[in-house]
Design a protein around this nucleic acid. Structure first.
Length: 285
DNA sequence: ACGCGTGCCTGTTGGC
DNA sequence: TGCCAACAGGCACGCG
């Protein structure tokens, strides 16, 4: 499931395929894939891709009107195309005559700067993913965007202090995108293990030292995962169809009942915040 | 205001 | 071997 490192990898691998390309016709194959706040897909026609980047788990395309299409583009301009891959979303380019697959939800025709044609596919087996064509005004109306928490990799060392005040489990707080952006089940479990903190601890009970240790662990794990092009459990692929390698370094995620790689004790499995959770009762306090 | 439980969705897994 | 319930989980939503 794509979390911060996976979406970062998708953005990096997709950019060279779409930079400078101009949107043409787009086909929506599943109605619910288009976000309710979205501008119509047709409004993308004539817009050029300036950049592809990541915020939290969101993939964002920065767009501006292509000069050769002046006059044919209607205001307001769709300045962003935003994709949330959720669980099983995949985004990739192909040649212009590539047909849709079983799980294709949206197809965008693109024209390269040189004039040749290609296609951008959004496939999503479980259809949780969303596409949003937006401008700054729409973004301001979108609660998820407006309330999205800070980027973990941009926080100062003491940046978690004050974000973790509540009574709920620390893991639930880490998964809350309003608290901190981009963390999902894998990196929450892995970071809590590396920091030696039990997932079910009240988030407000962490002292300054633990907050600093947790953020340090989070950053370390996220950066190392980005280095390895993310984690592929089952569905995740980058824009070139390649799997990541970070899943080979997991200490706890998906290892319930197996032995802790640090102390050898069997890892415990439970549910925290409604999610499958694995931790070491010996290494995590 | 906060935090919890549920539904969405489909392919894979594991138990009988 | 075959069937089917359980499971995977990010987020919107409704409730207390």
């Amino acid at each position: 499931m794509p979390e911060l490192p996976e979406v970062e990898t998708v953005a990096r691998t997709l950019l060279p395929h779409v930079a400078g390309c101009v949107f043409g016709h787009a086909t929506l194959l599943k109605e619910s894939t288009l976000h309710p706040l979205s501008m119509p897909l047709e409004s993308l026609a004539g817009m050029r891709v300036d950049h592809v980047w990541r915020r939290g788990k969101l993939l964002l395309f920065n767009l501006s009107p292509d000069e050769s299409c002046d006059g044919s583009i209607r205001e307001p301009l769709p300045e962003n195309l935003i994709v949330h891959l959720r669980m099983t979303g995949r985004i990739f380019t192909s040649d212009a005559n590539q047909e849709q697959g079983k799980h294709t939800r949206c197809v965008f025709d693109l024209k390269e700067p040189g004039g040749s044609l290609k296609r951008l596919f959004f496939d999503d087996t479980r259809t949780f993913g969303k596409i949003l064509v937006a401008n700054p005004q729409i973004l301001q109306q979108w609660p998820f965007w407006r309330e999205l928490g800070p980027e973990p990799l941009e926080l100062p060392p003491n940046g978690l202090e004050g974000l973790l005040k509540g009574k709920r489990a620390i893991k639930a707080a880490l998964l809350d995108q309003k608290v901190i952006a981009g963390i999902g089940n894998i990196y929450a479990d892995e970071a809590l293990f590396q920091a030696g903190i039990r997932p079910m601890r009240e988030s407000g009970s962490l002292d300054k030292k633990e907050c600093a240790r947790l953020l340090s662990a989070l950053k370390d794990i996220l950066l190392r995962s980005i280095d390895q092009c993310g984690s592929s459990i089952r569905d995740y692929r980058d824009a070139n169809g390649n799997v990541g390698a970070f899943q080979n370094t997991f200490f706890v995620y998906g290892r319930g009942g197996e032995n802790c790689r640090k102390c050898g004790e069997p890892l415990q499995k439970c549910r925290v915040g409604g999610r499958a959770t694995v931790f070491c009762g010996n290494c995590q306090k």
